[in-house]
Amino acid sequence: MATVTVEGFPVRTEFSYDLTHHMWVEELGGERVRVGMDALGLETSGTLAHLMMVEVGTEVARGEPFGSLEAEKYVGPLVAPLSGTVLAVNADAVASPSLVQSDPYGAGWMVELSASDLEGERSGLVSGDEIVTRFAQKVTEYRLEGVLAE
């Protein structure tokens, strides 16, 4: 397990990332994956007030919502980084969204999926040596847009 700090944000380098929607993916073996939100996504969301996830057994498609979050009176979708069937929902995170913000890559995971096309969709994620560079690019992009303060 390796956590590095990139431009002030923790990043787990053994995970894969959908940096558009700020979701991480941890492969747990076979088709089973765990999904959560990365630290940059949490920073730009604001303080999470509520989380809601679909029920176990629900099929979700990559790029479609598997739940919703609310922060600062804004309700937005949690977007699935992979297609699959929901195997588990982190009830602790739903009950206490602050858990997601305090431990985004650990106890603050959101759902576990049985990925339906892991081989095919894995290439759409950022992983390996690219992670640090691409994450840093995203932070720079946000700073240039004024989304993040220097």
Binding site: T44, S45, G46, A71, E72, K73, Y74, G76, Y142, E145, V147, L148
Partner: peptide
């Protein structure tokens, strides 16, 4: 939308 939700609102 901007990346920061509060800013968007």
């Amino acid at each position: 939308a901007t990346a920061r939700r509060g800013e968007t609102i």
